[in-house]
Computed example of a mutant assay.
Amino acid sequence: MGDGTRIGDMVARRAEAMRAGDAEALTADYLPEAVAFTLAPPLRHTAPQVTDPEVLRAWFAGFAGAVDYEVRDLEVVEGDGVAFCHSLHRLSAVPRGGSEAFVLWFRSTLGLREVDGRWRIAHEHASTPFHMDGSMAAAVDLTP
C-alpha cells in the first residue's frame, strides 16, 4: 500500500475518531515532540496538550452530543520518511448549554514523520481566514 494511501487512511480514521469522540485514538497519532497550531488558544500547543487524551476529552465534554466532522479535498505529498497533507475540514456540534449546532469550515495541514513503519503527526496547523475589511473578524461563514 502506497504511503499516500496510508496517510489518507490515517486522516479518514482520525475523522471517524472525531465523530466517535475517541480521544485515545486521536492523541495516539502525535509524536511526543509534536507541535500543534489549533483553532483554540494558546498560539502553540505541545505535549501534554496534544498527547494527553484527558485534554481532548475535556474539549469533547464542551459539546452536548457527538461532533460531526468531515474532511474534504485531501492532498498528500510524501518523501523519504516525511510527508505533509492539507485539506478542508468541517466541524459541527452543539455547544453544551446551547440549542443549535454551529458549522465551521477550516483549513488543516499536517507534517508527518514515519516512525517504526507508522505515519505520525509531528506538526499540525489549523486555521480560519479572516476578513480584511477592517473588521478583522474570523471568516467562519465560508464554505467550499
Rank of each mutant, 00 (worst) to 15 (best):
A64H: 03
T143G: 01
R118W: 02
I7A: 02
E24M: 01
A66Y: 02
G79L: 10
T128W: 07
W59R: 08
L91A: 10
T38L: 14
G134K: 04
C85N: 11
V67Q: 11
H131C: 10
V140Q: 01
Y30G: 01
E100L: 12
A36Y: 09
R6H: 07
F84M: 07
A126L: 13
Q49W: 14
R14E: 15
A20H: 08
P53Y: 11
V11C: 03
G81C: 06
A138Q: 12
R6M: 14
R113F: 00
R57H: 01
L91R: 13
D133L: 01
A66W: 02
R107N: 03
W105K: 02
D116V: 03
R96V: 05
R57Y: 00
A58N: 13
E16M: 04
W59T: 10
G79Y: 07
S135F: 02
D22W: 12
R72Y: 00
E70D: 14
A139H: 00
A34V: 03
V103T: 15
Y30W: 12
L43T: 09
T46K: 07
A23K: 06
A83P: 10
P32C: 03
R90N: 02
H45C: 06
E24R: 11
G134Y: 01
G2E: 08
E100M: 00
G117N: 06
V140R: 03
R90H: 09
R120Y: 03
T46R: 12
A34H: 13
A122Y: 05
T27V: 13
V94I: 15
A126C: 11
I7R: 02
G4H: 15
H125N: 13
A25D: 05
A40N: 11
P42E: 07
M132N: 01
A28F: 12
A64F: 08
S108Y: 01
T109H: 06
M1E: 08
L88I: 13
A93G: 05
A66F: 02
T5C: 06
T38E: 15
P32I: 01
F102I: 04
A64Q: 08
A40C: 00
R120Q: 13
A25M: 03
G2K: 12
H86V: 00
D22N: 13
D52C: 02
G81T: 03
G8R: 09
L142S: 00
V77W: 10
E33L: 03
Q49A: 13
R57V: 01
Y69A: 08
S92G: 05
I121A: 04
Y30T: 01
A93L: 11
T109E: 04
R13S: 15
R118G: 10
F130K: 01
L88K: 14
R72V: 07
D73S: 06
Y69P: 11
A138I: 09
A34S: 14
A122P: 08
P53W: 12
Y30F: 15
A40K: 05
G134W: 02
T46S: 10
E78C: 11
V55H: 14
G134P: 12
G134L: 06
A93Y: 12
D52V: 00
L91Y: 13
A101I: 12
A25N: 07
A93E: 03
F60M: 11
F37I: 15
S127Y: 07
R118F: 04
E78I: 00
M10H: 06
A17M: 07
R96S: 10
H86E: 14
I7Y: 06
F63Q: 12
V71A: 14
